[in-house]
């Protein structure tokens, strides 16, 4: 078994952002998968994702679910070939450069945070 959610979470708690890279086709993902969705390969190596990237898309949630205090910004960050969905700090826009800045666990579950460079 390659990277598990537990591994991903533990790494994030320790300040490391992990993803997986397919040994067969080179596709990279910001979350674990048992099988590569590009080529069907099962050899997905754990890889440390770059800590600097670019905002691919973003929004500011004004009406949060129970368990969260709004408003806050959420988006997906392009990190070379992979993307991750993260909490964003610094009122960033699509194309802005951002850096990995730890994690939040507002709901009891952990999520990565990126902030404006």
């Amino acid at each position: 078994m390659s990277l598990t959610h537990d591994d991903w979470t533990t790494a994030l708690e320790n300040g490391d952002l992990l993803g997986v890279r397919c040994s067969d086709c080179g596709a990279t993902y910001g979350t674990p998968f048992a099988v590569c969705n590009d080529c069907g390969g099962r050899d997905l190596e754990t890889t440390e994702l770059p800590e600097e990237g670019e905002i691919y898309t973003e929004t500011t949630v004004q009406v949060p679910p129970t368990g969260f205090e709004g408003p806050y910004q959420v988006g997906t960050v392009q990190l070379d070939g992979a993307r991750v969905t993260a909490r964003l700090e610094g009122d960033v826009e699509i194309g802005d450069r951002v850096v990995f800045d730890g994690a939040i666990d507002e709901s009891g579950d952990i999520a990565p945070v990126f902030r404006a460079e």
Binding site: H5, G30, T31, T59, V61, V63, P64, P65, F68, G70, Y72, V74, V84, T85, A86, R87, I104, D105, E106, S107, D109, I110, A111
Partner: peptide, 14 residues
Amino acid sequence: DRHYEQPTGLTFPG
């Protein structure tokens, strides 16, 4: 996604 989206506070309008 329960593990990689919900913890960010993402909603469906989001």
